[in-house]
Amino acid sequence: MSWLYLGAAVVFEVVVAISAGNAKGFARPGWTIATLVSGAIATYFLSLALLTFDVGVGYAIWTSAAGVGIVVLGALFFGQKLTLNKVLGILLVIGGVVGLQLSGAA
């Protein structure tokens, strides 16, 4: 169940990033509310996941997976370039997350 909680936390963290980008420095109230609410939900699910995961490992997986998701969605839907360096970075992040999981921490 902790993986489901962590997955939900990642999804809502991606929503935080997209909403914050559209909030334009919190000048747009709807996007600002979406940022704050999704941030609270992401933190709630992360806290549930951390009942099982080591804090450092769970947090690292959460931020890494969300970061990769944001880069990929940016390339797919927001016209951001997916360069070779970004792809290599994503592969390094995935390798690090796999390494953390193989450490037996969760």
Rank of each mutant, 00 (worst) to 15 (best):
A27M: 05
L4M: 14
I41W: 04
F26E: 10
V15L: 13
T63D: 10
S2V: 10
A20K: 07
L36D: 01
I70Q: 12
L51C: 06
L92K: 08
P29D: 02
W62T: 08
L84N: 06
G39C: 05
Q80C: 03
F77I: 06
M1F: 10
L76T: 06
L36K: 00
A8W: 08
W3R: 14
G104T: 14
A49Q: 05
P29M: 04
Y59R: 04
G21A: 08
L4I: 15
F53D: 08
L92N: 01
V10Y: 04
A66S: 15
G30N: 01
V68P: 00
L36I: 13
G74Y: 01
T63Q: 12
L91Q: 06
F78L: 14
G56I: 07
S64V: 11
V68I: 15
E13S: 15
V93E: 05
V16L: 06
A106I: 08
A20F: 12
N22E: 14
L51Q: 13
W3Q: 13
V97L: 09
G74K: 03
F53L: 10
A20T: 13
N22V: 02
V72G: 01
V68K: 01
G96W: 11
W62N: 09
L100W: 10
G56Q: 03
K24A: 11
Q80A: 09
L88A: 15
D54H: 11
L91S: 09
V57E: 09
V15G: 03
Y5K: 07
